[in-house]
Amino acid sequence: MNPIPNARRLRRHQTRAEEKLWAIVRGRRLGGFKFRRQVPIDRYFADFACWAAKLVVELDGPTHEERELHDLVRTEVLERCGYRVLRFDNDLVLADPGGVAEAIGAALRPRA
Rank of each mutant, 00 (worst) to 15 (best):
H70S: 07
G61S: 10
N6S: 15
A53D: 13
R87T: 00
V100W: 02
L69A: 14
V93A: 01
R11M: 11
V77I: 05
H64F: 03
R11D: 13
A52R: 12
L30P: 07
V57I: 15
N6D: 12
T63M: 15
R9W: 12
N90Q: 07
R87H: 03
V56W: 08
F35M: 01
D60R: 00
R9F: 09
N6Y: 13
F88A: 03
R9E: 13
V57R: 13
D96M: 02
R11E: 09
I104L: 02
H13I: 15
F48Q: 06
A106E: 01
D71V: 11
P62S: 05
E58W: 03
G105W: 00
Q38Y: 07
R12T: 15
T75D: 09
E76F: 11
L86Y: 03
F35T: 03
R26P: 06
R87I: 05
I41F: 04
G105Y: 04
F48K: 06
L59Y: 02
R87K: 06
H13C: 07
R37C: 05
L78S: 06
A7M: 13
V93I: 11
Y44C: 12
N2L: 15
L92F: 02
F48N: 06
W22V: 05
A52T: 13
L21A: 05
I41P: 12
I104Y: 00
E76Y: 06
N6C: 15
V77G: 01
R8G: 06
I41R: 04
G105F: 03
G98A: 02
Q38T: 14
E19R: 14
G82E: 03
T63A: 15
L78Q: 10
A53K: 11
G82V: 07
E68W: 15
V39L: 08
P5Y: 13
A101P: 01
E79K: 09
A53N: 10
V73T: 14
Q38A: 14
G98Y: 00
P62M: 11
I104R: 02
H70V: 08
E18G: 06
G98P: 04
A49I: 10
D60G: 01
F48Y: 11
D42N: 13
A17D: 00
A103M: 05
G31R: 12
L55R: 10
G27Y: 15
E58N: 08
A49F: 10
A95N: 13
L94Q: 00
E102K: 04
L30V: 12
V100S: 01
A112C: 02
L10D: 13
R16H: 12
G99C: 00
G105C: 04
F88G: 03
V77M: 03
W51C: 12
Q14G: 11
A23W: 03
Q14I: 09
P110C: 09
N6K: 14
E79F: 03
L72V: 09
P5E: 01
A101D: 00
I24F: 10
L92A: 08
G82P: 05
